Simulated scan of single mutants.
Amino acid sequence: MKILPVEDAVGMILAHDMTEIVPGKSSGAAFKKGHVIKKEDIPRLLNMGKEHIYIMEFKAGDVHENEAAIRMAKAAAGQGIEFSGPSEGKVSLSSKYPGLLKVNFKALAEINSIDEAMFATLHTNQFINENTKIAGTRIIPLVIDEEKVKVVEEICKINYPIIEVKPLKKLKIGIVTTGNEVFYKRIEDKFGPVIEKKFKELGCSVIKQIFSKDDADMIAESIKTLIDEGADIITTTGGMSVDPDDVTPTGIRKSGANIISYGAPTLPGAMFLLSYIDNIPVLGLPGCVMYNDRTIFDLVVPRLVAGEIVTKQDIVKLGHGGLCTGCETCRYPNCGFGKGGLY
């Protein structure tokens, strides 16, 4: 690499983007890679604090920052991802469609252990919308030894994909609403519409809602009816606490479901129940799902809608980061809720 006074660089071609920061107004590339420096550029360059220009002298085995970023992004990206850039040496990765973001965070750590390479992502296992920026990658210097890029590519090959967006399935949802007070129409059901709205956000539709008394056998038969009618996921609402009249967990067991977890290390959502009948998820949703913006529902259900089998260990991991702070204005998923259980 040669260093020239800016006054002597007229006619030279920039090998990298040059950033200009105007406090409170803008930050971006004033001069792009490949720009031929003109005499009239000199005052602006000096105002940017650029009294010298770096002229790249490539040697065999060197890879420019732009090429390196493109190669690393392509090696790491799986389905549902599109690229933008490189800009100032960085390639950004965004989602092509709404879906479940999956990041192999252990392999990501391997990549970031490679000197002079970096790859940053959002947290794994969260629902993201279309055109969401989910990752960015670049190298630290202007050029890097190609062997280092090849190491990154090999890590990606072995652990492919490092990052992907799983499409959500358009599932049919069945709801069993329990409680004598609702069954006998003493009060209006407020839970069902909330569940329907939350599943609609995920591209799913409710095919049927059954109202049941606080009777374990009736709850079990309602679950079986929804399975027979083609429900892909069944939710039961109400009756999930420890009161004597709360028999929903017993009804789920009587339906033949295999209980994976009754209870979750999340607040709100501690009384959540996860079970399966022939790989069909049967959920017991605590009352907090009805009146809290974001709960255990938002941490687990998107994974189910993407076709994943959620295990007991997946639930256990939610404890680290499982406390919602109840912000006055909910910022989820741009907060720590559900983001800590990566180990």
Rank of each mutant, 00 (worst) to 15 (best):
G269C: 07
N279V: 00
D278W: 04
N258F: 09
I252F: 10
F272V: 00
K224T: 02
T236D: 12
G256Q: 07
D298H: 15
E221C: 03
I296S: 04
F297T: 06
A257D: 10
F272A: 00
P286V: 07
A270E: 14
T295K: 02
R303T: 05
T225E: 14
D232E: 15
I252G: 07
P302W: 11
V289N: 00
V289P: 01
T237C: 15
E221S: 14
Y291H: 12
R303Q: 15
M271R: 13
I277F: 04
F272R: 01
D228I: 06
E308I: 07
G263Q: 07
Y291L: 08
N258Y: 10
P268A: 10
D298I: 08
I223R: 01
R253G: 01
Y262E: 12
D245C: 09
D278M: 05
A306Y: 01
D293Y: 08
P249N: 04
G269T: 03
G269K: 01
G238F: 12
R253Y: 09
I277P: 04
P268H: 04
D298M: 09
S222P: 13
R294W: 03
V305T: 12
I309P: 03
V289S: 02
P265F: 10
L267S: 14
G230R: 08
D228N: 13
I223V: 09
T250R: 13
V300Q: 02
D278Q: 06
I259Q: 11
M271E: 11
I223D: 02
I260Q: 05
I234L: 06
T236H: 10
I277H: 07
S275E: 12
D246I: 01
E221G: 02
G269R: 05
M240G: 08
I280L: 03
A257H: 07
D293A: 12
T266A: 15
L299T: 04
V300M: 00
C288G: 05
I259P: 09
L274K: 11
P249L: 04
V300F: 00
L283H: 14
D245T: 13
E308K: 14
M271P: 08
I260C: 08
L283M: 09
S261A: 15
D243I: 02
G263V: 02
T225P: 01
A264E: 09
F272Y: 02
L285R: 12
P244G: 05
M271Y: 05
Y291R: 05
